[in-house]
Simulated scan of single mutants.
Amino acid sequence: MSRDSSVARNEKPRYSQTEFIVRSALAGGFAGGLAKTAVAPLDRVKILLQTHNAEFIRFAGTRDGLLCALQYIAQTQGVRGLYQGHTLTLARAIPHAAVGYTVYEKVSKWLMPTPESQTSFRRLTAGAITGMSAMPLTYPFELIRVRLAVETNQTATRPTPWSAVRGIMAEGRSSGGITGLVPFLHFYRGFTVSLLGTVPYRGGIFLVWETLNAQARAVLPPATLQANQTRIHLAVGAIAGTVAQIFTYPLEVIRRTQQASGKGTPNRMIGFQETVRSVWMAAGWRGFFTGLGIGLVKQVPTHSLSLASWQLAKKALNI
């Protein structure tokens, strides 16, 4: 645990339960929104590559593919195109981080009330529960964000969140079975894969985060630790995000492909096996790692900023 978290566990609560939750949610929401805003252009390019967009597949695997893709978007869609769908990203990221970090504080305190109880399994479990906690509420925002990100057709009218919502609802109504009766279910394309992937991803992030912070406290002198706390948090957050990204990236590609699949199969939701086959047929095993380089470039600042700013916000809010 971070020094602030460890101290907090040994002190009597200074706030009521409600006030603590509000302050914790504010800290988490700030961290999530800041990190996502910083990497929004990279996130859009990554989604376009993951979904094997016809206009952007030529940039995959090239040395300067990232810069060329960013330049192409800016030239064809303007600077605003780099942030297409970002409002939806924030609509998902802020509550997701607010709920997630708050849940993590509570769950980790329950699972690991003492330093002796801080095992790798419990750290992994706390992170996994954190990742799953906000997904049912925020997942539709992610799906809409992906639909906006993969939209590259140049028309006089820029795609909006409402046009994406109407399109997804129309897909649901045009399909048969239960999704025809409950079209809102189409907002959960890829949800099962997301839930499956968030366990090792979020669990791995918090496992590495807590383990490396504990090692830093054990190895570094207190004065050095205090003077460089933010730098340490930035470095540990980057490592945690990188490790989790590499191990779970194929599941992310499958998830993004399912989320974007309504563009090609609007009348039904494609399943896990069909998605795996389509990715394999398109690019072989390499298809499951398309955009990984950009993903890693994105994850370093994302998790560095998110985890480090979370700690700074907690300090500022005195929790």
Rank of each mutant, 00 (worst) to 15 (best):
M281S: 13
V253C: 08
F206T: 08
G271C: 07
G284H: 01
A27W: 01
Y72C: 10
G32S: 02
T87S: 09
T155F: 05
V39L: 09
L148H: 11
P183I: 14
F206N: 09
M281N: 15
H303S: 06
L307K: 01
A164Q: 07
F121N: 07
L196F: 14
K36N: 15
I205C: 10
T152C: 02
G197Y: 01
P161K: 02
Q118L: 13
T87N: 02
S194I: 04
E210A: 07
E142N: 09
N10V: 13
A27S: 11
V45I: 04
Y83K: 03
Q77Y: 04
S174T: 10
F191L: 11
L212M: 06
P200S: 03
T130G: 02
Q50N: 13
G190W: 07
V146K: 05
S304F: 09
A134H: 08
I47W: 15
Y104Q: 00
L49F: 14
S261I: 07
F184S: 13
S278N: 09
R158K: 13
I239H: 05
V199P: 07
L196Y: 04
A97R: 00
T230Q: 03
T157M: 08
Y15I: 00
I232L: 15
M281V: 04
E210S: 01
H96D: 14
C68G: 09
G131Q: 05
A93I: 08
K263P: 01
I270R: 04
K263F: 09
I319M: 14
I178D: 10
T248N: 03
L148N: 04
E171T: 07
Q17E: 05
R277D: 08
G293D: 03
T211M: 12
M135N: 11
T119N: 11
A69I: 02
T89S: 13
Y83F: 15
L185R: 01
A156T: 08
T138E: 11
Y15W: 13
